[in-house]
Design a protein around this nucleic acid. Structure first.
Lengths: 155, 155
DNA sequence: AGGCGTTAGTTCAAATTCGAACCACGCGTT
DNA sequence: AACGCGTGGTTCGAATTTGAACTAACGCCT
């Protein structure tokens, strides 16, 4: 029971999860790309900035929130800056830190892709559940997410 | 109800899903890397080959099964071939096609990482559900996966 | 046989990602 | 003030990924 091959029910659940997350990612990616010329990673950065106080976050906090490496964030923010969607500025209180801030143009770009993004997420995932199933699904994945976060922080 | 912001229950489900799949991917990746020096992508290739008749598949079938681009598969199979885990050979019946075949060494490498892989999948996901929840979860994600596959094939 | 649209796979350059190395700074200790 | 250690960010080269050609071969149709 503990180191045997995954049994059929387990296998089905695992494969379904892998396939679903893989394809959802591709759908989201595709919509954001064609629809607003941005990647899912860039989109998530803009979303987190939008949510943040003063529409800005320090690079390291941003990296934690979107769960990517520092160097990857540096690269992506540079790209976003090039497009004028984000601006960098030095933090006065901590001279090591850098603020990444959503620009007005960035907010527009975000607003422009969001309806399409919601359509993809609802049309392919959330909207295919009954209210009860949505609740169940949310409970299950959040339990897993919480566990994985704890797991990770213990390192 | 159709183009409003995601409401709390939806948002929770979506974010939970994104975080869970992202972190599961990282956990799996980490285990396979440290434990057997391979990426999740390489692992999936070996698994599909292992499952196939004669432990071999044509490149394009393999690409479809692991859901990656042709060029990416070419690259990854080349890497696996370099490590001696897979071998390529021409297909006699269709001179365009190429067989990718799991070598004995590849089968060993696969066998070596599988216990750890199962531990990660069970310890972080499947094993955290009751039998009933596992069934529910499997049903939900497979419904989504099936839908996304149809969706995609209609293009 | 010749033509034509499709499929299989590879190749190439450009874009992205990774991970280790690095620099500058903050902070607590001495 | 000097030291040492941890943090915040960037940089750099190597590895990987992308997507658009490109070559070869198949299969159908005439």
């Amino acid at each position: 029971m503990n180191n045997d091959a995954l049994h059929p029910t387990e296998l089905r659940a695992w494969l379904g999860f892998v396939v679903a997350s893989h394809l959802m990612e591709q759908e989201v990616e595709r919509q954001l790309k064609t629809d607003g010329g941005m990647s899912h990673g860039e989109f998530e950065i803009l979303v987190k900035l939008d949510l943040a106080d003063g529409h800005r976050l320090r690079m390291s906090d941003l990296a934690r929130q979107v769960m990517i490496s520092k160097s990857r964030l540096t690269y992506q923010v540079t790209q976003l800056e090039r497009q004028g969607l984000v601006s960098r500025s030095d933090c006065p209180s901590d001279r090591r830190a850098v603020w990444a801030e959503l620009t007005a143009k960035g907010a527009e770009a975000l607003a422009a892709v969001r309806p399409g993004h919601r359509r993809v997420v609802r049309g392919n995932l959330l909207g295919r559940f009954t209210d009860e199933e949505l609740q169940q699904f949310g409970d299950l994945v959040n339990r897993i997410a919480d566990h994985l976060l704890e797991q990770r922080d213990g390192r």
